[in-house]
């Protein structure tokens, strides 16, 4: 039988994979995609909590997941627009190259 712990451990594993990608990769697009992986892991966790909750008719987890997906979509649109502008300015999207503000 699949318990709530299985879902939460899987969501933690996916979150950790996304965190690893966001910290290690140099390409700005892959960093944004890793952040999307973390968003999805959080949504999976919220929906699993809703499925196993004592009051599923409140639909709280589902609502949180829908709003999370909306905000993630807005973040992806603005983030990828920023990547395009950064490419136009630096001719590169390596995150290590953006150090103009470094003192």
């Amino acid at each position: 039988m699949t318990t709530l712990a299985h879902f939460q451990i899987l969501a933690s594993l996916l979150f950790v994979i996304g965190l690893f990608g966001a910290v290690t990769r140099r390409n700005a697009i892959v960093v944004l995609l890793s952040i999307e992986i973390m968003f999805n892991a959080a949504n999976l966790s919220l929906v699993a909590f809703w499925r196993y909750s004592p009051h599923p008719e409140q639909l709280s987890g589902v609502m949180f997941a829908i709003f999370g997906i909306t905000i993630a979509a807005a973040e992806a649109a603005v983030g990828l627009a920023l990547v395009i502008v950064i490419y136009r300015y630096y001719k590169s999207i390596e995150v290590d190259g953006m150090r103009s503000l470094k003192g």
Binding site: M1, L4, R51, P56
Partner: peptide, 12 residues
């Protein structure tokens, strides 16, 4: 609470 199994009849 993590070891509970899924209650039946939950739908959205």
């Amino acid at each position: 609470a993590m070891s509970q199994t899924a209650p039946a009849g939950v739908a959205s």
